[in-house]
């Protein structure tokens, strides 16, 4: 990555950072345009693409861990009803804590500090309520006569779960995954405050830059695009996994 060098545009005008490039590449920056494609393409491979990749990793880890925990808890609550209320209460409590506060409160916890682990713990905490509720709702909404039929066919509890309940709950589960993933993509920008990686880094640096806004706009747009792409992919996964509902899908 090129070290940012500050140059002053003549006449005491705004100080415009020079992110490398040569000759006419400065023209857009000096005119202080809204968005400089030159800057974008010049910083894509050094700054934006690595940040995007880190962002994807942050989100994937958070959603995967959140999904594993929620699935376990939801299966428990599906089997033993009294589990539901305490889990809902605790995950709602986590969900209520504003992101800035949660990230900061985790810093002094032993073993976390300013690290990816801190970011992941907070991001996972926010996925739990959404995923748990959706998985449980999906499992509960399986029609009783379908379950009776399965039982009548001599299926064991485990067989019913794997062959009947989980497949039928899949649309609700994936709906939960979509919400969790999309909101985690947005939330992970704030993780940059405790873990110096992801698209939050160029966003924060763009915010601190009073004049030059390309970096902020580029990183912000990448975040939104990533969320949309992830959402689209999950819709695709659902189509693949639930071929029986394809005819009805609106």
């Amino acid at each position: 990555m090129n070290p940012p060098v500050l140059i002053a545009a003549g006449g005491g005008g705004p100080i415009i950072p020079n992110f490398g490039g040569n000759g006419h590449a400065y023209a857009c920056e000096q005119a202080n345009r809204l968005f400089c494609w030159g800057w974008f393409s010049h910083n894509w491979s050094g700054t934006l693409w690595p940040a995007l990749r880190q962002h994807v990793v942050l989100v994937l880890i958070a959603v995967a861990i959140g999904f594993a925990i929620s699935m376990l808890l939801a299966l428990l609550a599906h089997r033993f009803r009294p589990v539901e209320q305490p889990v809902i209460a605790f995950t709602s409590f986590l969900y209520t804590i504003p992101s800035l506060a949660l990230f900061e409160l985790l810093i002094p916890v032993p073993g976390l500090g300013l690290s990816r682990a801190t970011a992941e713990v907070a991001l996972v905490a926010y996925t739990l309520l959404i995923l748990f509720r959706n998985i449980l709702a999906g499992l509960r909404n399986v029609p009783a006569d379908v379950l009776d039929a399965a039982r009548g066919m001599g299926m064991s509890h485990r067989q019913m779960l794997w062959r009947v309940e989980l497949p039928l709950a899949l649309p609700a589960i994936i709906a939960g995954l979509r919400i969790a993933t999309v909101s985690t993509v947005a939330l992970a920008t704030i993780a940059a405050l405790v873990d110096n990686e992801g698209l939050g880094v160029p966003i924060l640096s763009g915010i601190n830059d009073y004049y030059f806004k390309t970096e902020l706009i580029a990183a912000g747009a990448l975040t939104v695009l990533l969320a949309v792409a992830a959402d689209g992919m999950l819709v695709g996964v659902q189509r693949l996994l639930t071929p029986w509902s394809r005819g009805r899908a609106a």
Binding site: I190, L216, I217, V224
Partner: peptide, 18 residues
């Protein structure tokens, strides 16, 4: 509601303030 969820609040604020 779906679009809203994808908006990073920090970016909306920052672009607004910019």
């Amino acid at each position: 509601g779906n679009v809203w969820r994808a908006l990073p609040s920090l970016v909306v604020l920052a672009i607004g303030s910019a």
